[in-house]
Design a binder for these strands. Structure first.
Lengths: 155, 155
DNA sequence: GCACATTCTTGAATGATTCCAGAAAAGGTG
DNA sequence: CACCTTTTCTGGAATCATTCAAGAATGTGC
């Protein structure tokens, strides 16, 4: 087995054309697990020289459509994307810097998928987001965190 | 006891001034559990005649800050607000029309709050979002849903 | 290698949300 | 009850993420 399922093969299997921007995006996501569009675009540009932001959006949309990547959208953050799909895992999001980490489901594959009262909805997915503080931000005295996504932008 | 904790008293207790727009927002939220800013603004205008969108945002921000309302942001939808706070409950979101319903926690008050591996994060909240199809959309043959937020806008 | 469909580029539009400065209103005090 | 300070509301513009559109470039199957 290759390093991690040959990207070219992945694209072909998904019925998608193999283009430079697409490979760059896969590569970027492989390196940065929960990157937002901007980071992915930066990474892709570092690799290819020039890629339009639009292309990144298109690529990500195509990937999401065929299930190659999963789009996650923690409240208050721009959308982020990850390659891990299929295994129902969840995320911890840092309230102060926006960092995201993966969390495997504690009770098997579909933990809380059973709602107490589904109001007649037919539920097909349970998405769990844990909110807290990442080790880095916990260590820092509540100011000057690494990224700062939504507080005191002037500091 | 009043219908549901006198709004005026609620505001006073929260240390907020009692203003017409604020009462209108509380009223609107009492009637529409998971309204977005636009709906709230409409409801408030129906009641007061004129209110700036800005005022609605300010009011909601103030309410959120003191914990009077909770802000929820399902991926792909504008932010929504609800009065129910304090009881850790979750939401079911309809993939086709965006409808939201409350779901009480099946296993007591803090169900999945225990992540299998917290990566060093100190977690303070677990937010669960169930995705599925609401009864209305399930009944409809997959087209012409009530609101249609994000699929096949041309249909 | 060719033709065709798909994908990328450029540039602009949209929608939600926020920032700003000034005008108005609410509450507490004398 | 009038005054003053603080907070809130108005109106308009700015910002950010994302999407739309039209044409040029590229990948794929034959």
């Amino acid at each position: 087995m290759p390093t991690l399922t040959d990207p070219v093969a992945q694209l072909r299997e998904a019925g998608l054309r193999v283009t430079r921007p697409r490979l760059a995006v896969i590569d970027a996501l492989g390196r940065q697990p929960h990157a937002d569009v901007d980071s992915i675009a930066d990474a892709a540009r570092a690799e290819l020289g020039t890629v339009s932001t639009q292309a990144i959006y298109d690529v990500l949309k195509a990937f999401t459509a065929v299930g190659l990547v999963r789009r996650i959208e923690p409240a208050g953050s721009p959308a982020r994307f990850e390659l891990r799909v299929g295994d129902n895992h969840h995320h911890v999001v840092c309230r102060s810097c926006g960092a995201i980490a993966d969390v495997d489901c504690a009770h098997g594959s579909a933990p809380c998928l059973t709602a107490s009262n589904d109001h007649g909805f037919s539920i097909d997915e349970a998405e769990v987001t844990y909110w807290g503080t990442c080790p880095d931000c916990a260590a820092t005295p509540a100011h000057e965190s690494s990224i700062l996504i939504r507080e005191e932008p002037h500091a």
